[in-house]
Amino acid sequence: MAEPTLLAAEIRDVTFGKDVKVVEPANLYGCSIGDDTFIGPFVEIQKDVAVGRRCKIQSHSFVCELVTIGDDCVVAHGVMFINDLFGTGGPAQGDKALWKSTTIGDHVSIGSNATILPVTICDHVVIGAGSVVTRDIVEPGIYAGNPARKIRDI
């Protein structure tokens, strides 16, 4: 029987602000993390991601390349960001020309197990747990569902 190649979670090539806390194991590489931010265990943050100041990225969340998260944001447990929309009918196979970016404004809270497709979310938004954000959110408020829709003002 063949032996697998074992890869360990690691933290490399990360620009950290002041007083950042990371709970291991975490897989962070090629990203930047702002001052006073907390990263929980079993989080992966890929290269070319920028996380703002005073954020909380809770356990088991995945932040893929091309995501920017503003200041004072909460990404709850198990949130998944997606940058590949399978525009050619299948995975981009690493062709970054097919990937799209996501921008999260300031004071955004994303509930557990939400999925965020490549979108822009304005400041002062709450995304409900389990929601799927498929379109840009341009007005502050509380959004929930699949696809996520505004359910009320904050």
Rank of each mutant, 00 (worst) to 15 (best):
D72H: 15
V67W: 03
N83S: 04
G78V: 13
D72T: 15
E65L: 06
T68M: 06
I82T: 07
K96N: 05
G87A: 10
G78P: 06
G89L: 02
L66W: 05
C73Y: 14
D72I: 14
A97T: 15
V75F: 11
T88A: 02
D71V: 14
G90Q: 02
T68N: 12
G90L: 00
C73K: 13
T68S: 15
D84M: 01
A92C: 04
L66M: 09
V79C: 12
V79T: 11
Q93A: 04
A76G: 14
D95L: 03
V79H: 08
A76H: 12
G87F: 00
G87Y: 01
G70Q: 07
I69A: 06
G87M: 04
G70P: 03
C73T: 13
Q93M: 04
L85Y: 02
D84F: 00
G89W: 00
P91L: 02
M80S: 12
N83R: 04
D84H: 02
L85H: 05
K96I: 10
T68W: 03
H77A: 11
V75L: 12
F81M: 06
I69V: 15
V75M: 09
N83G: 08
T68V: 10
E65G: 08
F86W: 05
G70S: 11
F81E: 03
D72R: 15
G94Q: 07
F81W: 10
G87K: 04
A97D: 10
G78M: 14
L85M: 07
P91V: 04
L66Q: 05
Q93I: 02
Q93P: 00
D84Q: 01
D95Y: 04
T88V: 03
V74R: 14
G89R: 02
D84C: 01
K96Q: 07
I69S: 07
G87D: 03
I69W: 11
L66T: 05
K96T: 10
E65P: 05
V74W: 14
K96Y: 08
G87C: 03
G94W: 04
M80T: 14
D72K: 15
V74H: 14
V67Y: 08
E65A: 08
G89I: 00
I69T: 07
G78I: 08
H77V: 15
D95V: 08
T68A: 13
V74Q: 13
A92Q: 02
H77S: 13
D71G: 12
G70D: 09
V75Q: 13
V74K: 14
G70N: 12
G87I: 01
D72F: 15
T88H: 01
V79A: 09
P91S: 11
H77L: 05
G90K: 02
A76V: 13
G90P: 00
A92S: 09
G78A: 12
D95W: 04
L66Y: 05
F86D: 00
A76F: 11
